[in-house]
Amino acid sequence: MRQYDVQIKETKDLQKIICNKCGKEIIISKGVPQEDYLEVEKRWGYQSNKDNQVDCFDLCEDCYDDFVKGFKIKI
């Protein structure tokens, strides 16, 4: 006798990426973004006012460049 653990696997196909700052859509072809972008995911810790909150956003390359221009200490 054989017993199998049957699990239904959920698949998620990436449909689109939209820049959170300017709204530009990054084209996806066969599940692969056709240009680079910045993906950020931050889980806030106990020492913050956002304890365990998770923030996620994406920036296109132009918005990333604009973002880092504002840094006091350059990267």
Score class of each variant (00 low, 15 high):
47 Q>N: 11
32 V>P: 00
28 I>Y: 10
46 Y>G: 12
31 G>Q: 07
32 V>A: 05
48 S>D: 06
50 K>Y: 13
51 D>T: 14
34 Q>S: 07
39 E>G: 06
22 C>R: 08
21 K>H: 07
39 E>V: 02
41 E>L: 07
30 K>C: 09
36 D>I: 01
42 K>M: 05
47 Q>Y: 12
39 E>F: 04
26 I>V: 05
38 L>F: 08
20 N>G: 13
38 L>T: 07
35 E>G: 04
49 N>T: 07
31 G>F: 06
24 K>P: 08
50 K>P: 00
41 E>M: 10
23 G>R: 07
24 K>W: 09
48 S>L: 04
34 Q>E: 13
51 D>G: 00
22 C>G: 11
44 W>R: 01
25 E>R: 13
37 Y>C: 12
25 E>I: 15
45 G>L: 06
40 V>I: 13
40 V>P: 00
32 V>C: 08
26 I>R: 02
40 V>L: 10
30 K>M: 13
21 K>S: 11
41 E>N: 07
41 E>R: 12
43 R>W: 00
24 K>Q: 15
37 Y>G: 05
24 K>H: 14
21 K>F: 03
35 E>L: 02
42 K>E: 03
44 W>K: 02
20 N>I: 00
42 K>F: 05
49 N>D: 13
45 G>M: 09
50 K>D: 05
33 P>I: 01
21 K>I: 04
51 D>L: 09
29 S>N: 08
46 Y>Q: 15
44 W>T: 00
51 D>N: 12
33 P>D: 01
42 K>T: 09
49 N>S: 11
46 Y>K: 15
46 Y>F: 12
40 V>A: 13
46 Y>E: 15
40 V>S: 14
47 Q>M: 11
36 D>Y: 04
25 E>T: 15
44 W>Q: 01
31 G>K: 07
47 Q>W: 10
47 Q>A: 10
27 I>W: 05
26 I>F: 02
23 G>T: 10
47 Q>F: 11
23 G>H: 11
27 I>T: 12
45 G>H: 06
32 V>Y: 12
20 N>T: 07
26 I>Q: 04
50 K>T: 00
30 K>T: 09
35 E>I: 02
21 K>L: 07
41 E>F: 06
35 E>Q: 14
23 G>Y: 08
23 G>D: 07
25 E>G: 06
49 N>V: 02
21 K>T: 09
26 I>P: 01
34 Q>V: 01
29 S>L: 09
50 K>A: 04
50 K>V: 00
31 G>E: 04
41 E>Q: 14
25 E>C: 13
31 G>M: 08
30 K>A: 15
39 E>L: 02
24 K>F: 08
32 V>R: 13
37 Y>F: 15
43 R>C: 02
50 K>H: 11
47 Q>E: 14
40 V>E: 03
27 I>A: 12
